[in-house]
């Protein structure tokens, strides 16, 4: 395990989910995704529909990092909010800290202003949880000992020859 890994313990996951649930209740958004800036999903809460959250995370992180690069071309540090408006559903992405972003999907029963307001509050709370999580000693339990030869030999198997 390396120093710059992101480790989310069960207690941290519960706290993050509680903040995301409160955020959904207050803002009227339908889904909230906490995404690492490298494109990986950290936590998700919301309406129980079959969204491809893995792809959404990769694309949203890509779009957000791309707007960040645009900001730098203008001499800004970054654009802290990215907003996509659709006919029925819209998407709001905002900064949590230098490693994570918060994505909210919302429909017609709320407004971008409400989402923006409560996303800011949620981001502050989640930033605090993530920063405390990073400061904790990383007791690793099952993952604390090196892999055996068998464990490190796991592969994607022999695919069907086409």
């Amino acid at each position: 395990m390396r120093l710059h890994d992101v480790v989310i313990h069960e207690g941290d996951a519960e706290k993050i989910n509680a903040v995301l649930t409160t955020f959904l209740g207050e803002s009227g958004a339908t889904e909230a995704l906490l995404i690492d800036r490298s494109g990986q999903l950290l936590a998700a809460t919301g309406a129980n529909r079959a969204l491809d959250t893995v792809s959404i995370s990769a694309l949203a992180a890509g779009a957000f990092s791309s707007t960040g690069a645009l900001a730098q071309l203008l001499g800004e540090t970054e654009f802290t909010v990215l907003f996509h408006q659709g006919n029925k559903e819209s998407m709001h992405v905002s900064t949590v800290d230098d490693q994570a972003i918060l994505l909210a999907i919302f429909g017609e029963r709320t407004t971008v202003g409400m989402v923006r307001l409560f996303a800011k509050e949620a981001a502050t709370a989640i930033g605090q949880i993530l920063s405390e999580a990073r400061a904790k000693p990383r007791s690793m339990g099952d993952l604390s000992t090196p892999l055996t030869a068998d464990e490190s030999r796991t592969t994607f198997g022999e695919p069907t020859k086409l």
Binding site: M1, R2, D5, V6, I8, A13, D36, G39, Q40, L42
Partner: peptide
């Protein structure tokens, strides 16, 4: 930078 999620029992790697 691996992401290790103990709640979901998932480790994510990027290649």
């Amino acid at each position: 930078m691996a992401i290790i999620n103990y709640a979901q029992k998932v480790i994510n790697f990027k290649v």
